[in-house]
Amino acid sequence: MVELKDRELIFVFTGPDGSGRKTIADSVGSTLGISKVLSYATRKPRPGEANGQDYHFISSELYEQFHAGGEFVESVTINNNQYGLRDKDVAQSFENNGCIYLILNPEGAEILKRMYGDHVIRLFIYADRNTVEKRQRDEGLSEEVIAAHLSHYESDMDYQSQCEHAYENYDLAHTIFDISNRLEGYLKRNLVERD
């Protein structure tokens, strides 16, 4: 497990599938110059996903090899697929940047919070069930995948009260703006506006 220094923070974007957490996280990370750490996944890429950009898509055999070697700092199984975050990826990202961001489901977010305490800031992104369902259909996900996601929508929503911040995502630009401003306060870079 990586030992974090005082100013090192992990921003975890979490919430139900279809809430827009990935789009928001990547936009905020790009705006603020925060490094993204990718998880490893044993499932196939979904429409619009790319290996090395959304996840490291690997075989179940390789995942088990990493797991047996104690390489995952966080590992969960969701809908029969495994997802994990490698300790060495977190360590390398902190070498380059004082803060990192991750996109995790609530279970993964909770594991990191227990491990790193106040170094983890959880940002819960959500939308109502009908909006989430429509977004997933618009993405081209299969009815089977959508049903699997919706099967844990309520339990994902229950995690909101445990997170440091929560944002209802109906206006993407507004949500990105609000979160960027909030995280700027954590970064304490004392930026000065210039005309």
Rank of each mutant, 00 (worst) to 15 (best):
P47Y: 02
S59Q: 05
Q82H: 15
N80W: 03
E64W: 05
G48C: 01
S142M: 02
N80K: 14
V73T: 14
V73I: 15
R86E: 07
N80Y: 07
R135Y: 11
T42N: 01
C99Q: 11
Q53C: 01
Y40H: 05
I125C: 06
E139S: 08
V132C: 15
V90G: 00
S93P: 10
G69I: 00
A50G: 01
L112M: 04
E133D: 12
G84D: 04
I121D: 07
H119P: 05
S93Y: 11
S142P: 06
E110G: 04
Y101L: 06
L102K: 01
N97L: 03
A68D: 15
P45F: 02
Y83G: 05
Q136H: 00
E64F: 11
G140Y: 12
L85F: 02
G70I: 07
R135F: 08
A68C: 08
I121F: 06
E110H: 13
F94N: 05
D138M: 11
I125E: 08
E61M: 03
V90P: 00
G48R: 04
N130K: 14
L104D: 08
Q65T: 15
R129I: 13
L112E: 04
H119S: 11
L123F: 05
N80G: 01
E133H: 13
Y63W: 07
Q82K: 15
R114L: 12
N80H: 12
A109C: 08
S142Y: 04
H119E: 08
K88Q: 12
E61A: 07
N96P: 00
G117R: 10
I125H: 09
D87M: 09
N130F: 08
I125M: 10
L141T: 02
D118I: 10
G108A: 08
N96D: 10
M115C: 02
F94E: 05
S75A: 15
E49W: 02
L141H: 10
S93E: 12
Y83F: 13
G140M: 08
V73L: 11
N79Y: 15
K44E: 15
F124P: 03
H56E: 02
N97R: 05
S60F: 08
F94D: 03
V132E: 06
S75D: 14
R86W: 02
I103K: 08
F72A: 06
G84I: 05
Q65W: 13
N105H: 09
N80E: 13
T131P: 09
R122H: 00
L123K: 01
D87K: 14
F94I: 06
F94L: 09
A68Y: 12
S60M: 10
T131L: 15
